[in-house]
Design a protein around this nucleic acid. Sequence first.
DNA 1: ATCCTATCCTGTAGGC
DNA 2: TGCCTACAGGATAGGA
Length: 305
Amino acid sequence: MPELPEVETVRRMLAANVLGRTIRTVRLSGLKLRERIPADLPRRLAGRRIVAARRRGKYLLLELDDGPTVLSHLGMSGRWLFHAQPPRDRMPHVHATLRFADGSVLRFQDPRRFGLLRLVDAEALSSDPSLGILGRDPIADPPTGASLRAMADGTRVSVKVFLLDQRRIAGIGNIYASEILHRAGLDPRTRAGAVRPEAWQRVARETRAVLGEAIERMGTTFSAYRTLWNEPGSYGDQLRVYDRAGEACPTCGTGVRRIVQGARSTFYCPRCQSGRSGRLRAASGPRKAARTTASAPRRRSGARH
DNA sequence: ATCCTATCCTGTAGGC
DNA sequence: TGCCTACAGGATAGGA
């Protein structure tokens, strides 16, 4: 799942490869992603030059020379792929093909179509509904223990769910949330409002460390994510707990557990991350039951690199 | 306001 | 071998 490190990797590669290029033609699949791609996108992009590649949280922004910005989100399986020469393949699930004046091509591929392609006028960027709700970016504006604690004040949700909330910190997804909390030695079930100041400091430090190291390794390819050159990221080797239910915790050897929080998997070490205060009750309502008590180790999609 | 659940979607894995 | 089903989760609408 593309999270901040994966999106930042793609942004850097876009900056290195498509900046300054002029779009000649655009072709759309016509299929609906998270929302419909504007039908006038080809007309509005033709002849425009890409002058900036930015990122906010998990959103990518390609700024055009006449003002508007192509706003994109990779969702679960989206990819921006660059080809110096026009590709001759018939790659499935390509929803937008941008052909540049020099013959190079940029494609947006997204099998599961949770992604997003939107054109936003310069003056509307600040009021864009998706961007508008985003909290601080942990790379541009690194969190501190104090800032996290202030944001969590009075919040009753678990610290894991808190970290996933894009309105507070923009860019952390399900993989890195588990990794950050493991490295911070904090029980993912702890209520965010009850996390101690020292623990928030560790969360802040590990957020910066994990995201930074993941960017260095061009992200984590769990299944679908690829860089602009269709290469997998290599941070998967560094994952300590994510998708490792039943395996030994790299710190203490205890079996890694999988639980479900907010309908998403959380992986943690019950020994290294033992919280003695502020723990939420395991279940607060009818739930699909039985799976929350991490049973047998389950292996999934072996595509991790 | 806050929290929680269902929904969108397809590739993959596991069961039989 | 092949069919069938469950599962993965980012963002968001809508309900509690």
